[in-house]
């Protein structure tokens, strides 16, 4: 397949449309503690993450990269136009099916890059986070594995008080 053929007209039509709105379960102190232990392994994380008094004293704040949606969401708000994704795309990070179109026929994926802008509003135990994503754009690049489709996805997180936590952008490389 030529590089240009990777971006279909119907894919361009869904750029900018929100999808994957989801609301997290309340964040627990245990979620934060386990995350910090995993990312600092094999060394111990900084003291507040494992201090049993930290949650009660309001000193436990999640790492900036903490993901409260990792093991599912309390609520997922459908777009109303979902189609069932082909299971072969399960590991490709495909998202187009949320917006009613078939994912591109690329089954392998890599994380091409990410960026995050943090507002300074923290994530603490008990917080409930809402995330909403949209495809920001598609592009094609030639790599050592052939033509690759780059998909930029922008996601905004807000807490239960409507405060924005961060905006996160990811470039998904599919090939």
């Amino acid at each position: 397949m030529s590089g240009l053929g990777l971006i279909r007209p119907d894919m361009l039509e869904i750029v900018g449309r929100p999808y994957a709105r989801q609301i997290s379960y309340p964040i627990s102190a245990s979620d934060i503690r386990k995350w910090s232990l995993a990312v600092y392994f094999p060394e111990a994380p900084p003291a507040p993450y494992t201090d049993p008094c930290a949650p009660g004293e309001g000193r436990l704040v999640a790492p900036l990269d903490f993901n409260p949606f990792a093991w599912g969401a309390a609520e997922k708000v459908p777009t109303g136009c979902e189609i069932a994704p082909d299971p072969v795309y399960r590991s490709s990070g495909a998202m187009e099916h949320h917006l009613g179109i078939a994912p591109p026929d690329l089954r392998r994926a890599l994380n091409g890059g990410v960026s995050a802008t943090y507002t300074g509003a923290p994530m603490r135990p008990g917080d409930v986070i809402t995330a909403e994503s949209a495809i920001a754009g598609y592009s094609v690049r030639e790599g050592r594995l052939g033509a690759m489709l780059l998909t930029d996805v922008a996601t905004t997180w807000t807490n239960q008080n409507g405060e924005e936590i961060k905006t996160y952008r990811m470039t998904l490389i599919r090939y």
Partner: peptide, 29 residues
Amino acid sequence: GNLLWAWLHCAIESWLGDRGRVEHLECRF
């Protein structure tokens, strides 16, 4: 890639502690 992303945050956090905060981080793998 997400773990490398996490380690970059850890590197800054370990250095900065409570003397500052990350406002923006971007990386290419």
